[in-house]
Design a protein around this nucleic acid. Structure first.
Length: 405
RNA sequence: GGGGAUGUGGCACAGCGGCAACUGCGGCGGACUGUAAAUCCGCUCCCUCUGGGUUCCCUGGUUCGAGUCCAGGCAUCCCCA
């Protein structure tokens, strides 16, 4: 294993908080592999780059010789983590949890070294807990402390409901740490309370306490709000390379260095250099953004994927060419009306370019619809069927295409 | 258990009984660009649309007419116990 200081340089890169740092140093100084814990909240089967931030940090731990325990939260899923939420999560069924956990592991495997990863289910020890044990665990916590949490506090202050069972979530998560005897637990910054709850409970049980390490929440494509599926500002780990590349090109300039640090595979020294470049104002944001997008495409889709995505991107947006891989709509399904015309708005709704006929009309009136590169005039909803032969491309905006087949 | 307040389109916030419903945010499209930022313009319930249909927590009622008034319910929050 590397000397403690060298390990720390890698471990601390991009982290938000490490509490307490002294204990981490002491644990590392033993020279033995640490048990790194990450709890998986099996509510969202589709992971995005934000989820990958802690995973990448775990991978760095693995590369340093440490071990990772991935906890599938099939027990805690009965509650749903209230962290950062402004409303109660709906409970999941056992089947949903298992299905979600499976896709989670598949996606996480792109980042983690699965040979150094242990997967366990916390339902195995949480579900057999009897009332007496539950009460004993709960007695180590108090309501005022839990209410101090920002999310609960906000919900309380904003007159939003808080269900009683949501208070138990940190208790159960803390108990996981006791069971697996974790040395360090990772999480997003909104997890800090839950991670510290683990420390409290371990001390109460007379164990060596885990260290809490949090990673910043990744900001989304808009550069302001956190990356989240519900905000629609995310890059999915399973996004096609071309989508991934395009989305990454649209991030705000200011967040490029942070994306390099939290999402790319670039060595720390190079990330430091890029960050300094941006700070000094000498950076070429466009070129750096392209480098970033290539790197991340390579990470999730294999070496060379980034370059191919960049070529496709340049063709579509620099040279305004129609991309190769676009949805098709069979010519046979095109409906002709009484006048022998094709009602274009209806066709657009049918082939998925618009969610309703009325919406398609608005798109046309707004000048955002092209057929074979020619903009359709406002109100020109009817089109001669002869112009819609196989190979014709209908386009809405800059990035939505359908080819008649 | 008692008292009070609130419930409007993705979110926020308006709405003397005549409203498809003000405004802001967000989203989409166009111009300009580096699919960045900033700025400007248009659209943003459904419908082959100078018109029609269905909406303002739910159910009834008053009225020519109700998001707006009345009654009962449901939900959330606050105060007291």
């Amino acid at each position: 294993m590397l000397p403690v200081d060298d390990q720390l340089k890698i471990i601390t890169s991009g982290t938000m908080q490490i509490v307490p740092m002294d204990e981490l140093k002491a644990k590392l100084a033993k020279g033995e592999p640490l048990n790194i814990k990450l709890g998986v909240d099996p509510t969202s089967p589709d992971l995005h780059l934000g989820h990958a931030v802690p995973l990448r940090k775990m991978r760095q731990f693995q590369d340093l010789g440490h071990r990772v325990t991935l906890i599938i939260g099939n027990g805690t899923a009965l509650i749903g983590d209230p962290s950062g939420r402004d409303s109660t999560r709906p409970p999941l069924t056992e089947e949903q949890v298992e299905a979600n956990a499976k896709t989670y592991v598949e996606q996480a495997a792109k980042v983690l070294d699965m040979d150094k990863t242990t997967i366990v289910h916390n339902g195995d020890w949480l579900k057999p807990l009897d009332l007496q044990s539950m009460l004993r665990l709960m007695s180590h916590f108090n309501v005022a402390r839990i209410l101090e949490r920002e999310d609960f506090h906000n919900r309380y202050a904003n007159q939003m409901p808080i269900a009683l069972h949501e208070f138990i979530y940190p208790v159960l998560q803390a108990y996981d740490s006791v069971v697996i005897k974790s040395d360090l637990e990772m999480g997003g910054n909104d997890q800090i309370f839950n991670l510290l709850a683990g420390r409290d409970l371990m001390r109460a049980e007379g164990m060596e306490q885990q260290v809490a390490l949090t990673m910043p929440l990744l900001v989304g494509l808009d550069g302001h709000k956190k990356m989240s599926k519900s905000y629609g500002n995310y890059v999915g780990l399973t996004d096609k390379p071309n989508d991934m590349f395009g989305k990454l090109m649209s991030i705000a300039d200011e967040v490029v260095p942070m994306y390099f640090r939290l999402c790319s595979t670039l060595p720390i020294d190079e990330v430091d250099a890029i960050e300094a470049e941006f700070k000094a104002g000498t950076a070429d944001p466009y070129a750096r953004k392209r480098q970033l997008a290539r790197n991340i495409c390579d990470l999730y889709h294999g070496e060379g994927a980034g370059q191919r995505a960049q070529d496709a991107f340049d063709a579509q947006f620099k040279r305004a060419e129609v991309p190769e891989d676009i949805p098709e709509f069979p010519a046979a399904d095109i409906q002709v009306n009484d006048q022998g015309q094709v009602y274009l708005a209806k066709l657009m709704a049918d082939c998925g370019l618009a969610s309703s006929v009325g919406e398609a009309r608005r798109f046309i009136d707004g000048g955002g619809v092209k057929v074979d590169g020619v903009t359709i005039a406002a109100k020109a909803y009817n089109v001669d069927p002869a112009t819609l032969v196989a190979g014709t491309v209908i386009q809405h905006g800059k990035r939505k295409f359908v080819r008649i087949a």
